[in-house]
Computed example of a mutant assay.
Amino acid sequence: MKIASVIVTFNRLEKLKLTVQKTLDEEINYLIIINNASTDETKKWLDSLLDYRLRIIHLETNIGGAGGFHVGFKEVTDNTDADWLVCYDDDAYPQKDSIKLFKSIALPKEAGSIAAAVYSPNHQIVNMNRPGINPFWHWDRVISFLFHGRKSIHIQDNMYHTEQYYEIDASSFVGYFVQTDIVKTVGLPRKELFIYADDVLYTLQVRKAGFKHYFFPTLKFIHDCNTIIQDNKTISPLWKVYYIYRNNLELYRMMAGIFFYPLALVKIFSWWRKEKHYNNPVLYKKILFTAIKDAFKKDFSKSHVEILTLCTPLDCEEKLL
C-alpha cells in the first residue's frame, strides 16, 4: 500500500516546519505540499528541503484551502501511484506511527475513506474536527438534530476511547484518508468554495456516491489550531462571514435535500440576530446578505479580492487560519 500526504500551507512557516518534520518521520511514500502564495519565507524554506518523497507546488495566487486541496488531490491522482491519500492543514500532523498503523489495519472491505481522531497538542478532542452523520440520511436523528443541533450528530467523547470503528457520513480534511481510485471516480474538492465546508461537502459527496466512510479512533492526528469564532458569537476577521455562511448554505443544500429551504430559513434567522454582537452591525449584515444571496443563486464566482472589498481595511487582514 502506498500513501501520499497532501498539505496546504499559507503563511504559517513555523507550524509548517513541525508538520513537515512529523510527516516525513512517518511511512509515507509521497508528500505533496501546496504553497498557497505565501508571502513569508515559506517558499524559500520549502525549496531548501531535500527528500525524494517531496513534491512542492508553489501557486501564484492564494486560492484558499479548498483550492489548495483541489490542486493537491489532482497531483496525487495524476502523477503518483499512491493507493490512498491523506490530507491535513499546515498546523496538523499525524501522531507518531499513525501511518504505519493505518497500513497494518484490517480495513472493512467496503471502506472507501477513513477519518482519524483529531486532538489538540494538550490531548483535548478538537471539536471542529469531530466526524459525524447527516441526520437527513438517518431519519431517527432528525428530531434530535432539530432540538439539540450539531452535538446530536457528532461522534461522542466515549467513541474516541475505544478500538472500535464507526460508520459515519462526514469529517474534516484533517486526518482524512481516501482511496485515490475513489477520487478519480467522484472528482476533486470544489476549489470555488475557497475556504470552509469544502471538506464536509467532499466527504458527503463520497458517501452519496455509495462509498463507506468510517471513523477509526485508534488513528490519531494533532491539530494545533486557533478558533475563528470568539465566544461563539462573532467571526473574525469579518470577511470570513461571507465564506462561512455562503458555504454552510451549500452544505445544508446537500444535507437536507427537499428540506433545505426550511432549514436555511431557521439558520439565516439565527445568523441575522448575531449582528448585535458586532462592532459594525451594518457591515456584518451587508456581508451576510451578500453571502445568502450568492448561496441561493449558487454563485461562487466572486474572487477573494472582491470579498475583501466588502470589509473595512481592518477586517481585511489576509490571515488564513
Results as ranks from 00 to 15, higher is better:
305 V>N: 09
314 L>I: 08
174 V>L: 02
147 F>R: 09
313 P>R: 10
108 P>Y: 11
217 P>I: 03
29 N>H: 04
113 S>M: 15
193 L>Y: 05
296 F>D: 00
224 D>K: 08
86 V>E: 01
47 D>V: 01
296 F>V: 00
133 I>F: 02
145 F>A: 10
201 L>H: 07
64 G>E: 13
298 K>V: 02
185 T>D: 14
26 E>N: 01
82 A>F: 03
225 C>R: 11
183 V>W: 04
86 V>L: 08
239 W>V: 02
183 V>L: 08
33 I>L: 11
117 A>S: 15
172 S>H: 03
305 V>M: 09
259 F>Y: 04
113 S>C: 14
138 H>Q: 08
270 S>Q: 09
55 R>Y: 15
145 F>G: 04
9 T>I: 05
238 L>V: 03
40 D>G: 09
158 N>H: 13
72 G>T: 00
309 T>M: 14
181 D>H: 09
66 A>T: 01
234 T>G: 01
35 N>E: 13
239 W>Y: 06
162 T>L: 03
222 I>E: 07
128 M>I: 15
114 I>G: 00
128 M>Q: 11
168 I>L: 08
89 D>M: 09
178 V>W: 01
10 F>N: 12
249 L>I: 01
185 T>H: 12
6 V>Q: 05
96 K>W: 09
63 I>N: 07
121 P>T: 11
120 S>Q: 14
157 D>W: 11
144 S>V: 12
47 D>I: 13
134 N>M: 15
99 I>N: 03
200 V>N: 08
271 W>V: 01
126 V>K: 09
128 M>S: 12
64 G>P: 11
174 V>S: 07
127 N>S: 15
248 N>Q: 14
214 Y>S: 06
118 V>R: 06
19 T>I: 12
61 T>C: 07
161 H>V: 10
163 E>I: 10
62 N>I: 15
